[in-house]
């Protein structure tokens, strides 16, 4: 019982620290500003396009998926969401070391894992609150500008989207905490996790293309006989790009937020039955079917988050803590 109280005490303190920190205020301001601006531009352009027409079903979700003048809210979270996780976690443990509070903390009657669990849970809660607030504000903006009330189907899709987004940012939060466990210096851990983010965000697609071209080179002017090579090239590219959680998240949320999308694969890789179903059946997919389509990506994302946190946990538990 006392150990659970210890976990809740650490969780509570970390949560207070996050919400009262300058860095959280800065992140919140930037994210809020950009996402509201994007959604406003999207909402006004959708309103103009719909003038004089009956409002189509599931139009509310367009607020989150339409690129508008810059990029969509979903694309924004896919790209900048990791930064929220990194900012919240890069100094979680090494800051305690720098302040010399870690020996004192673990000498209290709490299990050692309460420290890492409390910090991860508090970070995850902060991310959840931040994302929920953002989605709620954009939804409010949509109600005002579009005059459309979201249906249960759309609310369900948004709730699932929020859950997946929290897991996605949780992956980066876990990675940032791992950096803070491994590296003693706060600046070093910040740089290391930032470098990893840059690699996974920008370089994995490049590496995927290079690997695909090296293993299945496509001639400059492909003919019908080159179709198997083109397919192989595309398959390799997809397989390598799944190393990046950003690709997994983008593909999964694109299906969850757009009921008209019936696959996560590119048109090149569609089989004959999938092509047929796409041309013959034009109705939107129900939420359960969309979730089924995105399930492999979601499972990989959840597994990745668990693996990162398990690494973080095991490394922290094995470290010797000295005064």
């Amino acid at each position: 019982m006392i150990a659970v109280r210890g976990l809740s005490a650490i969780y509570r303190k970390e949560l207070e620290d996050h919400f009262s920190s300058t860095r959280f205020t800065l992140v919140l301001t930037v994210v809020l500003m950009v996402s509201l601006l994007m959604s406003w531009m999207t909402a006004t352009s959708v309103r103009k396009e719909l003038e004089g027409f009956a409002k189509p079903s599931l139009v509310f979700l367009v607020l989150f998926t339409s690129s508008g003048a810059m990029f969509s809210f979903a694309q924004f979270v896919a790209f900048f969401g990791p930064l929220i996780g990194l900012v919240l976690g890069f100094d979680a443990i090494n800051r305690e070391r720098a302040l010399r509070t870690l020996p004192k903390l673990v000498s209290q009657p709490v299990h050692r894992d309460a420290v890492i669990n409390g910090k991860f849970l508090a970070g995850l809660t902060t991310v959840g609150v931040l994302l929920t607030a953002l989605v709620a504000m954009i939804a409010g903006l949509g109600l005002r500008v579009l005059g459309v009330v979201p249906g249960w189907e759309e609310i369900g899709r948004l709730a699932l989207y929020l859950l997946v987004s929290a897991i996605y940012v949780g992956f980066w939060l876990g990675l940032a905490i791992l950096g803070s466990v491994v590296f003693r210096g706060m600046a070093t851990s910040a740089l290391a996790v930032l470098a990893l983010w840059i690699f996974l965000a920008f370089f994995v697609p490049v590496v995927a293309s290079l690997a695909a071209d090296a293993l299945a080179p496509v001639p400059p002017t492909p003919t019908m006989e080159d179709i198997p090579v083109v397919l192989q090239n595309e398959q390799i590219k997809r397989a390598v790009s799944y190393v990046s959680p950003m690709t997994l998240y983008s593909d999964a949320t694109a299906v969850l937020l757009d009921p008209m999308r019936k696959t996560t694969r590119s048109l090149v890789l569609l089989g004959p039955m999938e092509r047929l179903s796409l041309t013959r059946f034009q109705n939107p997919l129900p939420l359960a079917q969309s979730a089924l389509v995105a399930a492999p990506h979601l499972l990989l994302l959840v597994a990745g988050t668990f693996v990162v946190f398990a690494l973080c946990y095991a490394t922290f538990m094995r470290q010797e803590i000295r005064a």
Partner: peptide, 14 residues
């Protein structure tokens, strides 16, 4: 740990 108190060398605080 419930029964002991510990003051480390160079004790740290928030």
């Amino acid at each position: 740990k419930r029964l002991v108190g510990y003051l480390p060398e160079n004790v740290g605080f928030y």
